[in-house]
Amino acid sequence: MPAGAPVDPRGPRFAAVITTVVLAVVLLTGWWPLLAAQTAVFALGAFAGLRVAPYAVLYRVLLAPRLPATTEREDAAPLRFAQAVGFAFGLVGTVGYALGVPVLGLVATAFALFAAFLNAAFDFCLGCEVYPLLRRVTPRTGRA
């Protein structure tokens, strides 16, 4: 599946709900191995693709067959970018907690939680909104 192949927009929102719960548990407990697992989930979505991301698989197998069909589609590229941003915050948070710098872990996790919550509660993907802005200011190479 190409990086920008369209996806059912309900899947990423479902993933955001699970992510919100996971990150809230991490903030409440400081249990960094759970944050490390969430960071791996972000990595799969960002670098391997949304099709193999664990929460996307759960959505496709468990939820999508029970929902009415939709023709609405969303470009995957901004969603993968959002997953990469989540990965960065998750990695910083995991390293912070693991190295005994809990304030770093707490702050990075809180930023990731804020973004996930926006998507879960309000269907507002912060990374998806930043993606086109960065594309405008990033020079494109290899064009004639």
Rank of each mutant, 00 (worst) to 15 (best):
L44R: 09
G30D: 00
L63C: 09
P68D: 12
A69Q: 13
A24S: 15
F42Y: 11
L23Q: 14
P33G: 08
L67C: 11
P65M: 04
V25C: 05
A46L: 06
L34Y: 05
L28W: 15
F42I: 05
G49N: 06
A36P: 11
L23A: 09
A37T: 14
P54T: 06
L50P: 01
A56W: 02
T71G: 10
P54L: 10
L67D: 12
R73I: 00
L27D: 13
T70N: 04
L50E: 13
L44S: 05
G30C: 00
V26G: 12
V61P: 03
L35G: 11
G45M: 02
F42M: 13
T70P: 09
L63I: 14
E72N: 02
A64D: 10
L28S: 13
R73T: 10
A48M: 07
R51L: 02
V61Y: 09
A40C: 13
P33Q: 06
G30W: 00
R66Q: 14
V52E: 09
P68C: 03
R73V: 04
L62H: 05
F42K: 02
A46K: 07
Q38T: 14
A40I: 14
A24Q: 12
G49S: 05
G45Y: 04
A69I: 04
V41Q: 12
L62P: 03
V57P: 01
P33I: 04
L50H: 02
V41N: 15
V41T: 14
T29H: 07
A37P: 12
P65L: 02
L23E: 15
R60F: 01
V52S: 08
F42S: 10
W32C: 04
A64G: 01
E72C: 01
A56Q: 14
T71L: 07
P33R: 06
R51E: 14
P68F: 03
L27R: 10
L34M: 12
A56D: 14
V26W: 13
G30L: 00
L50T: 07
A56C: 00
Y59R: 01
A24F: 15
F47Y: 14
L28D: 14
L34W: 03
A53D: 04
V57M: 00
Q38H: 15
L67N: 09
R66M: 13
P33V: 05
W31R: 05
A48Q: 12
V26R: 14
E72R: 13
F42C: 12
A64I: 01
A48Y: 06
L27V: 09
A36T: 07
R60H: 07
G45T: 03
W32F: 12
V25N: 00
F47M: 05
L35M: 07
A36E: 06
V25I: 15
R66V: 12
L23I: 05
T39Y: 03
P54F: 08
T71W: 04
A64Y: 01
T70R: 02
L27W: 08
V57E: 00
T29R: 05
G45P: 03
A53F: 00
Y59F: 15
P68G: 13
G30T: 00
G49D: 07
F42R: 05
A69S: 10
F47T: 09
A56P: 01
A43N: 04
E72I: 07
T39F: 03
G30A: 01
L35H: 08
T39Q: 06
V41K: 08
G30R: 00
R51W: 04
L62E: 05
P54A: 12
A69R: 14
L50F: 02
V26D: 15
L63D: 08
P33W: 04
